[in-house]
Amino acid sequence: GIDPFTGEAIAKFNFNGDTQVEMSFRKGERITLLRQVDENWYEGRIPGTSRQGIFPITYVDVIKRPL
């Protein structure tokens, strides 16, 4: 089901994660935001896939912030 505490964002740019914990994505992908890790990073996942990880806040347009 849908978790009411998650947020939502759209990727503004392609992001290629450097490490296992970073999640790569392509511009235009819809991302579920799980939490804000710190002032620069979100943790999120791509709905319908097993992809999950952290990524820079500046790479996405936030539609709804996670609670």
Rank of each mutant, 00 (worst) to 15 (best):
I63L: 11
G53P: 01
T32N: 08
F13A: 12
T49Y: 03
F25V: 03
G28I: 01
N14R: 06
V60M: 03
I10Y: 07
G44W: 02
F15H: 05
Q20W: 12
R30W: 09
R30G: 04
G48F: 08
I63A: 06
Y59I: 05
I46W: 01
I54P: 02
G48L: 07
R51D: 02
F5E: 11
N16Q: 12
R30C: 09
R51I: 05
P66H: 05
G44I: 02
G28K: 03
R51A: 03
P66Q: 05
N14W: 05
D3H: 12
N16M: 11
E43C: 11
E8Y: 14
P4K: 14
G28P: 01
P56K: 04
W41N: 08
I57K: 11
Y42A: 07
R65D: 12
I63N: 05
S24D: 07
G44D: 00
P47T: 10
R26A: 11
E22Y: 12
P4Q: 14
E43M: 11
V21L: 14
V60Y: 01
A9M: 05
P66W: 03
F13G: 07
N16A: 10
P66E: 06
I54F: 10
F25M: 03
I31V: 05
N14F: 05
V21K: 15
V62C: 05
F13Y: 13
P47H: 10
R26N: 10
N40Q: 13
W41K: 05
I54D: 01
P47M: 09
F13V: 09
R26C: 13
L33G: 04
F13W: 11
M23H: 01
F13H: 10
I2P: 13
T6D: 11
I2W: 13
N40G: 11
F13M: 14
I46G: 01
E39Q: 09
V62L: 08
I10H: 04
L34G: 04
A11Q: 00
Q36N: 05
I54W: 07
Q20R: 11
G48A: 06
F55L: 06
R30T: 10
R65W: 15
I31E: 00
T58Y: 11
Q52A: 09
N14T: 10
N40F: 14
I63M: 08
P56W: 02
D18S: 15
I10D: 02
K64A: 07
T58N: 11
Q36A: 09
Q52G: 06
F55V: 07
K12C: 08
R45S: 11
P4I: 14
V60G: 02
T49R: 02
E22V: 05
I2E: 15
R35C: 09
G28L: 03
W41G: 02
L67P: 15
T19L: 10
G1L: 12
A9Y: 05
Q20N: 13
V37H: 07
L67T: 15
L33M: 06
P56V: 03
A9F: 04
E43K: 05
I46S: 01
V37L: 12
Y42Q: 02
F15Q: 01
E39Y: 08
Q20L: 13
A9C: 09
N40A: 10
I10W: 06
K27L: 07
D61P: 00
L33K: 02
K27R: 10
I57A: 12
T32G: 05
I31K: 00
F5Q: 15
T19K: 14
T6S: 12
R65M: 15
F15S: 01
T58C: 14
P4G: 14
T6V: 14
Y59G: 03
T49E: 06
T58M: 13
T58E: 13
Q20Y: 11
R26P: 02
Q36G: 04
D38C: 09
E29L: 01
F13D: 11
T49P: 02
R65T: 12
P47G: 08
I46V: 10
Q52S: 09
D38G: 11
V60S: 01
V21D: 13
G28W: 04
R35S: 08
N14Y: 05
L67R: 03
P47S: 10
V21R: 14
V60A: 04
A9K: 01
L33E: 05
K64S: 07
D61C: 12
T49H: 03
I2Q: 14
D61A: 09
N16L: 10
D38A: 08
F13P: 00
D18T: 15
I10E: 05
E43F: 14
I31Y: 00
F5R: 09
D18H: 15
Y59F: 11
F15I: 01
P47W: 09
S24E: 04
I57V: 12
K64C: 11
P4Y: 15
A9S: 04
V21N: 14
G53A: 01
P56A: 02
R51V: 05
E43H: 09
Q36D: 03
I46P: 01
R45L: 11
Q52C: 10
E22A: 08
N14Q: 08
K12L: 14
D18I: 14
T19P: 06
I57S: 08
G1T: 13
R65K: 15
T49L: 03
I31S: 00
K64V: 09
G1A: 13
I54K: 07
D18C: 15
D38H: 08
F5K: 11
Q52L: 06
A11V: 02
T32R: 07
V37G: 01
S24F: 04
G7W: 15
T19M: 09
Q36H: 07
E8P: 05
V37C: 08
G17S: 08
R30P: 06
E29S: 02
T19Q: 10
P47N: 10
L34S: 04
G44T: 00
R35F: 07
P56F: 02
E43P: 00
Q20G: 11
T58F: 11
P4W: 15
E29K: 01
G53S: 01
R65E: 15
E22H: 14
K64L: 08
D3Q: 12
R26G: 07
E22M: 13
G7T: 10
T6L: 13
F13I: 09
Y42P: 04
I31Q: 00
D38Y: 09
L34Q: 04
P56T: 02
T32E: 15
V60K: 00
P4F: 15
I2A: 15
G53Y: 01
F25Q: 00
F15T: 01
T49G: 07
S50A: 11
I46Y: 01
K12H: 05
V62D: 03
G17R: 05
Q52V: 09
R26L: 14
K27C: 08
L34T: 08
T6I: 13
F55D: 00
F55T: 00
F13T: 10
K12P: 00
V37F: 07
S24R: 05
L67Q: 15
P4E: 14
D61Q: 10
D3P: 12
A11H: 01
T32M: 11
G28V: 01
M23K: 00
G1E: 12
E22F: 11
I46H: 02
M23C: 03
I31D: 00
L67F: 07
R30F: 13
I63Q: 07
V37A: 04
I57P: 04
R35P: 01
A11N: 00
G1S: 12
E22W: 06
Y59H: 12
R45E: 07
T58Q: 13
K27G: 04
I57D: 04
A9W: 05
S24I: 03
E39C: 11
F13R: 13
I31L: 06
S24P: 06
A9V: 07
R30L: 12
T49A: 03
P66K: 02
D18W: 11
E8G: 04
F5I: 10
G53W: 01
G17D: 02
G53I: 01
G1M: 13
E29A: 03
E8C: 14
R65G: 12
R35D: 04
E8S: 11
S50I: 10
D61K: 11
R26E: 13
G48S: 06
G53V: 01
D38T: 08
K64W: 07
R51E: 03
I63G: 05
T58V: 12
F15P: 00
T49N: 03
S50F: 09
G17Y: 02
D38I: 05
Q36V: 09
I54G: 01
V37K: 05
R35A: 09
P66L: 06
E43T: 04
F55H: 00
L34C: 08
R35M: 07
N14E: 09
G7R: 09
I2Y: 13
M23G: 00
V37I: 13
T6M: 13
N40M: 13
W41P: 00
F25D: 00
F15E: 00
P56Y: 02
D18A: 15
Q20T: 11
W41Q: 06
L67A: 15
N14A: 08
R65Y: 15
D61E: 13
G7A: 08
G48M: 07
N40P: 03
P66I: 06
Y59T: 08
R51S: 03
S24K: 05
I10K: 06
S50E: 14
E29M: 03
N40S: 10
L67K: 04
V60W: 01
E39K: 09
V62E: 04
T58H: 13
N40L: 15
G28M: 03
T19V: 07
N14D: 15
G44L: 01
S50P: 10
K64E: 10
E8I: 14
T6W: 15
R26I: 14
Q36S: 07
Y42N: 01
D3N: 12
I2N: 15
E43L: 13
G1Y: 08
E8V: 13
G53E: 00
D3W: 12
N14P: 08
N16C: 12
G7L: 09
T19G: 13
T32S: 09
K64M: 08
